[in-house]
């Protein structure tokens, strides 16, 4: 049984990193494709002799579109870079909202593919949390993956943060119709989650309507 847990944990970790990298590369390739077509369009316009003063606004629009794509790509690189560096140290003081925002940005594509809206509702001015952000992201991913798989298209998942006393909480709230029963692919998923939350010194509870609440002490284990 111990080996089975280990195998399921490794499978979850690999799936997590694989999904993040696949989503990231997909987004970046799309941004580059738009930049290529936009610069190609400028080339086409020059070759066609569209060089009068009246054409300037069109050129400026295309240049703006290129700048927008570069901006989006840079933001995505920042998310991936932060995500990777969270694994440098096991325990660190981090901002919960930034940690969740980065996770949502990196996983958003998979929700979008199923026409599910993945959105955030963050309480501002949360205290910094001293804990293991990588494990927290993996834990939240395990719930998001399950809910994205279960929800039918046009569903919605809100990731809400909040603080109570000396704890912070992440609430995962799905809305919509579940196409299949809200079950896990791995038999030992609950055991893995229990292990994660034990490492974080927190608590997992189920709210109403398939909501999941993850609570973490601000000052760590």
């Amino acid at each position: 049984m111990e080996n089975k847990n280990e195998e399921d944990l490794k499978a979850l970790q690999l799936r997590f990193v694989g999904k993040v990298i696949a989503g990231f590369t997909h987004e970046i390739k799309n941004y580059l494709a738009i930049i290529k077509e936009s610069s190609g369009l400028i080339g086409d316009m020059i070759k066609m002799g569209k060089l009068s003063e009246d054409d300037i606004p069109e050129y400026l629009d295309i240049i703006q579109s290129i700048e927008d794509q570069i901006g989006k790509a840079t933001e995505h690189f920042t998310h991936l870079n932060r995500f990777s560096h969270r694994m440098d140290t096991q325990i660190s003081a981090f901002n919960l909202n930034e940690c969740m925002e980065e996770l949502i940005a990196l996983l958003n594509r998979f929700a979008r593919q199923k026409k599910i809206v993945l959105e955030t509702d963050f309480q501002q001015d949360l205290p910094p949390v001293k804990s293991n952000p990588s494990i927290l992201q993996l834990l939240v991913f395990s719930f998001l993956e399950k809910k994205i798989a279960g929800l039918e298209k046009n569903g919605r998942i809100t990731v809400r943060t909040g603080a109570v006393d000396n704890a912070v909480a992440v609430k995962i709230i799905p809305e919509g119709t579940f196409a299949e029963e809200d079950t896990d692919a791995g038999m030992t998923a609950d055991k893995i989650r229990e292990n994660f939350i034990k490492q974080l010194g927190g608590n997992i509870s189920q709210g109403t309507a398939k909501e999941t609440v993850i609570t973490l002490p601000v000052h760590g284990v």
């Binding site: 799309n30 077509e37 369009l41």
Partner: peptide, 15 residues
């Protein structure tokens, strides 16, 4: 589904 990509490519093909 990338609206900017589809529109720009469409414009280039129209040209």
């Amino acid at each position: 589904d990338e609206v900017a990509f589809a529109n720009t490519l469409a414009q280039r093909l129209r040209m």
